[in-house]
Amino acid sequence: MNNVFVYCEIEEGKVADVSLELLTKGRSLANQLKCRLEAVVAGSKLDGVEKQINPYGADVIHIAEDKSLYPYKTLPHAKIVKEVFQKEKPCIGLFGATSVGRDLAPRIASVLKCGLTADCTALEIGDHTDNKTGKEYKNLLYQIRPAFGGNILATIINPETRPQLATVREGVMKKEEVTGNHNAELKKVDAAGLLSEEDFIVEIIERHIEPRKVNIANSNIIVAGGYGVGSKENFALLFQLADVLGGEVAGSRAAVDSGFVEHARQVGQTGVTVRPKLYIACGISGQIQHRAGMDQSAMIISINDDPGAPINQIADYSVIGDLNEIIPKMIKYYKKNSK
């Protein structure tokens, strides 16, 4: 009762990265609250799915297995999660802010009449005193998220309703395996018994999902280009630098919108959140929405011909000048010094 729950998304038989990241976050929240961490998985052919989840420290895994449960559909998954939540009464429920989580979580919030905060960038435990009533609340979930196009950061709480629901985008939390062997208790959810015809009125006729080609979120070194790179052709320079450094290429929204790079490489509030060892921002001004996706990088180098560009405020090194001149020099001196 009153544990932390994570809804685990399944993609091609694998638990999605965002769910593993949430399990890691959920583990630390559960430790703080001295309660258990429970996972909910719904899908087909889930044999051995616990092997993927165990390293992230769940204490219990609720497994709903039925061939009708993959690929994801709103109504059957909503029914399963609702049933599990009504029975188990979680204090917290976490979902990935993906096309699945953002489709499912609001329905759960609506049917359970509880609060849901979308796209949180931080989750913390804390107390709260209501200004008007003076009522005190202990150990609430602080759901912290950007608002107003990223210009403000709001802390949202759900004082009265349970579970406290939140979605988090991929890459925002860090996934980390727990130490030691962890074997969760498995609980079967009677999917066939719960679901009825009315849950299957929406049918998937066709589905084309591309495998992940680029995954900048997992790269240690990112060479990112912005509008200042100027053209798709010029991005070749960034690919060369990324190539010699063993990194990936990313872009700002302005670069993506101009067609210089594909959307999968966009960093920022409406793109991917990254935290590499090294982030080289070339021709990126560093607007707030871009910084929101990369300011956790261990080291930031900015290459910009404008000394006043906001990116320089968060850069460890600001190289002031033309990127067309600087990047080739970086390649040259890397080749020279790395030997």
Partner: peptide, 12 residues
């Protein structure tokens, strides 16, 4: 059910 506890300006 959701309440805003705090609003902060984003300052880097």
């Amino acid at each position: 059910p959701t309440k805003v506890r705090k609003i902060e300006n984003v300052v880097f």
